[in-house]
Design a protein around this nucleic acid. Structure first.
Length: 282
DNA sequence: TGGCAGGGGTTGA
DNA sequence: TCAACCCCTGCC
């Protein structure tokens, strides 16, 4: 069984089930089963090492998937000095950003609107079992384009089926559509992705953050808006406009603002609450 | 057990 | 600015 020594903590549950990637589930023995680079793999952390069961998955792939080479304090930069970021990173030192496949990431987040994490995981599993390869690999753009909207609706995509089918058609036709040069600024890359049907500001940033490792992509959803108002603007009741938070996050957290969002979001969603205070959603 | 509200967004009017 | 879009979960 291959393994990798961990020089820093790795919290598999927070990282794999927290809403970055959607093809993982936890087993009774505490291991996590899912997919890395198209290969089915089971992971477990024991004695400061990460162990996995699939010998054809290389340590380099694991290293890359969990961004273990990322210098977090350096990437967070000045944003790391923020009080709430410090609390969040100290509370969840094992949380990592993932480097997901950009196509699968795009489909996952196309399916995410008004959906909870569990539901997105179910859709991912259905797409794999209905349209995926022999081993359950995630279906390609060509396959989903071929499948069409009606067949996708059978996988509980609802109105999102049209977006996925149409996006799959565009991506399948333009072979390199999802190849985004690293020289293209993140704001331009977001605009580029937003040409796709069903991709707005939130989804484009999620895909750039988790599918392209753009650490300056700052996805804003109702939870991020809520936590920013509660932590930084406690007197404010009115939700922010997207542009306001885009600007604010830039000034507050700088070029690592996507990672700042990841930790803040996770900490906010999992922090202990006073009795009676309900955490809604996932 | 069943009804109902509401949810991590985007689109088009 | 706002309704419409689907379906599932949690709660009563």
């Amino acid at each position: 069984m291959p393994s990798l020594f961990l020089s820093q903590p790795l919290d598999l549950r927070a990282t794999l089930l927290g809403g970055q990637t959607f093809c993982w589930n936890e087993k009774v023995d505490g291991s996590f089963a899912g997919w890395i680079e198209g290969k089915r793999v089971q992971l477990q952390v024991r004695e400061q090492s990460l162990h996995w069961n699939e010998p054809t998955v290389s340590p380099a792939s694991i290293q890359s998937f969990f961004c273990l080479d990322l210098d977090l304090p350096r990437t967070l930069g000045e944003g790391g000095q923020d009080r709430w970021i410090q609390i969040a990173t100290h509370t969840h030192p094992g949380l990592r950003p993932v480097r997901d496949d950009s196509w699968e990431c795009l489909v996952n987040f196309l399916c995410s609107s008004l959906k909870q994490i569990v539901q997105i995981q179910q859709i991912n599993a259905r797409l794999r079992s209905v349209f995926g390869g022999d081993q359950g690999e995630f279906p390609s753009a060509e396959v989903l384009a071929q499948a069409g909207e009606q067949a996708l609706r059978q996988c509980a995509l609802g109105y999102r089926a049209r977006h996925v089918a149409e996006t799959a058609r565009i991506v399948a036709q333009a072979r390199n559509f999802l190849t985004i040069p690293t020289s293209l600024p993140t704001s331009s890359a977001a605009q580029y992705l937003e040409q796709l049907p069903g991709v707005g500001p939130k989804i484009s940033r999620c895909v750039l953050l988790y599918g392209y490792s753009r650490w300056d992509a700052f996805p804003v959803d109702v939870w991020v808006d809520r936590l920013i108002r509660e932590l930084y603007f406690p007197r404010r009741r009115k939700p922010f406009r997207f542009e306001e938070l885009e600007q604010w996050s830039h000034e507050k957290f700088g070029s690592g603002r996507g990672l700042a969002q990841l930790w803040l979001f996770h900490w906010y969603r999992t922090r202990p609450r006073s009795p009676g205070a309900k955490i809604r959603g996932k």
